[in-house]
Amino acid sequence: MSKPLRLDPHTIDEIVALCDTMLATLSHAIDRSEDLTRAVSFGGFESAEQLRRGFLVKARGTPESAYERLTQFHEVLARMRETFAAGGQGFLDAEYDWARRLGTTDST
């Protein structure tokens, strides 16, 4: 049987901070992925134009493209962050409420 997960306030803060850092990094990568769509020309040959169009498709416009994948990762990580922040706070509230009640219980 697995051990229960125990989160203290410091651990929750660290997880949320890590998520914030990763979200900032992903946001920057999403912004930079716009540069991938600025491939002006690979030369005057038809094969070069086909190659350019292929790179544009990989950059943006399909569910598998760089921009869309980065955006998907950002959305999932943002939800994870919210879950840790909300769930962690709920966990802490319940834990401290339990400790408070225990502390105020008559010892007789």
Rank of each mutant, 00 (worst) to 15 (best):
E68K: 05
H74V: 03
A66T: 14
Q89K: 14
I15S: 08
I30K: 13
S2V: 13
L7G: 12
F91V: 10
E34D: 14
T105H: 15
M80Q: 03
V40L: 15
S41G: 03
F55E: 01
A99H: 10
L18V: 10
E68P: 02
R69W: 03
G90L: 13
A59W: 02
E49R: 12
S41W: 04
W98Y: 14
D31Y: 02
Y96E: 12
S41V: 03
A78W: 07
E49G: 13
R81W: 05
A39Y: 10
E46A: 05
Q50I: 02
A99S: 11
Y96D: 13
R81P: 03
A86K: 14
I15F: 15
F73Q: 05
D35G: 03
V40Y: 05
K58E: 05
S2M: 12
A86H: 12
H10A: 12
G54R: 00
S107T: 13
D35A: 05
T62D: 00
Q72N: 07
T37N: 10
G87L: 03
F42N: 01
D13S: 09
L51Q: 02
G44I: 02
Q72M: 07
L102M: 13
T25P: 01
D20V: 02
I15P: 13
F91L: 15
D20S: 09
P4Y: 03
S33E: 14
A29C: 05
V16M: 05
M22R: 15
R32I: 11
L51H: 00
P9V: 11
L5Y: 04
V16H: 11
L51N: 06
A85W: 07
R6P: 01
D20G: 08
T11D: 07
L5M: 14
T105D: 12
R6S: 13
E64S: 06
R53P: 02
M22A: 09
S33K: 06
G88K: 03
V57I: 09
S65A: 11
C19S: 15
D35H: 01
L102Y: 11
S65K: 04
E68T: 11
L26W: 08
G61W: 00
G44K: 01
V57P: 00
G44C: 01
F42A: 00
V40S: 09
H28D: 12
Q89T: 15
F55C: 07
L5I: 11
E49T: 04
Y96V: 05
D8Q: 07
R69L: 13
A66N: 08
L92G: 09
S47W: 01
T104Y: 12
A86Y: 07
R100F: 12
G88D: 02
H28Y: 09
L51K: 00
L77N: 06
T108K: 13
L51F: 12
T108Q: 13
Q50Y: 10
L70P: 07
H74T: 06
E68I: 01
R32D: 09
H10C: 01
A39K: 03
W98C: 10
F84Y: 06
A94K: 03
G90R: 15
G90D: 10
A39V: 05
K3Y: 15
G61Q: 00
K3S: 15
T37C: 08
A48Q: 02
E95N: 04
E34L: 07
